[in-house]
Write a protein that binds this DNA or RNA. Structure first.
Lengths: 143, 143
DNA sequence: TATTGTTATACTCTATAACTATA
DNA sequence: TATAGTTATAGAGTATAACAATA
């Protein structure tokens, strides 16, 4: 079918990526969040007070986008902008209590769903972890 | 750092997904294509004449989106809408010669980049393929 | 009646450029 | 001058609903 092994690995990889993406979108949507909003909330909840600029880097998008994304999260009471005491240009983002709860519940779902999307035994999973660890020596905690 | 193994595997997976996504976006952008356009072009070029509706299923989006995506590809002479002889409601999509060339060149880049994004030896790649094959018994040729 | 593709509408994400307030 | 955040703008993707042509 796909004789070239590099072709096959990429084929499989993209298929897996696609399933993970669709699963993540569905999970986020169940919490009434877009993908970008879910990633932003997750990072703010996990990484404590974080400047807008840093979040933009984390999301790999322009800083101007973060304004809108955070606007929507703040309007729903999930995140707060706080003035930074040291530098008054900076606005630090903090998850509200409700935001923390949503982030936690969302991430439990995301994790469970991601695992069910790969039909692997415990041994196979362990092997996959060790491969991924080598494939990605310095994993960033995303999304 | 991440004591829970399921936490770690998901962490690694999403990190990998993120690198693949960024790499794919950059490659598509080098051909002046968006991600959706690149996926659409790839499928049309690979799967011969394909009705709009089928492409929507393949891209996992609503049929109304495909109109705009194909409009842009057709405007650039990469894809053509053809009337279906059997059912006059259906418009079959075909890649032009130029579209075929772009799709081929794009996919070579995508494949090369995806492989360099995972720093694995040949043996490790072979193991990953076999794991992915089991994780996804019926891979669809996406994107 | 049901299906295919389109249009109209609205929302979100995206980058670029110009602006403000700080530093 | 340089940086952090915002705003304005424009383009693309997304879904929903309504529509015409065809089955």
């Amino acid at each position: 079918m796909t004789p070239d092994p590099t072709e096959e690995i990429v084929e499989h990889l993209f298929a897996l990526v696609d399933r993970l993406r669709v699963g993540f979108e569905a999970t986020a949507a169940a919490f009434d969040l877009s993908v970008a909003q879910a990633k932003a909330l997750r990072h703010v909840a996990a990484a404590g007070p974080v400047p807008m600029r840093d979040l933009a880097c984390q999301l790999r998008c322009d800083a101007s986008n973060v304004t809108g994304i955070i606007d929507r999260l703040e309007r729903r009471g999930l995140v707060e902008r706080r003035a930074s005491p040291s530098d008054r240009r900076i606005k630090s983002l903090v998850a509200t209590r409700k935001g923390d709860e949503v982030a936690r519940a969302l991430w439990i779902e995301v994790r469970a769903r991601a695992l069910t999307l790969m039909h692997l035994s415990d041994d196979e999973r362990a092997m996959l972890v060790s491969l991924l660890r080598r494939a990605d020596p310095a994993p960033v905690p995303v999304p």
